[in-house]
Amino acid sequence: MIDFGYTLTKDRQLDYDHGDFRYFRFVKALEPSIDLCIGCGSCSATCSAAQFTDFNIRKLHTVIRRGDIESIKAELRKCMFCGKCQLICPRGVNLRNLILAMNRAIEQLG
């Protein structure tokens, strides 16, 4: 697409070519098990917070992997950290530490 220096509408695609993968790399260094997710949704289904609000832990770490960070910043704050997700994950993803790592990423990378 020709870049005119401005756009009329915001591009709504996940722009993998211009994604910000610093966050993903940061998080992965702290919690390598982020790579093990197969997107089964059991974490988000059992989630204590998700029964009260739109909060989807599965999407959070999938989105960060796609290089999209803005949409998760506010979301991350809703986690109660109870650990049910981790107790149910069939892949052994260390979800609580993943949340901590994502928080750290936002703290340190802005």
């Binding site: 204590s48 029964q51 009260f52 109660m80 950290f81 109870c82 650990g83 609580r96 901590l100």
Partner: peptide
């Protein structure tokens, strides 16, 4: 019964 609001200790164990 229909789902808990976490007691808070898991957050505390993470220093929050």
């Amino acid at each position: 019964r229909s789902g808990s609001i976490c007691c808070g200790r898991p957050l505390m164990l993470a220093g929050k």
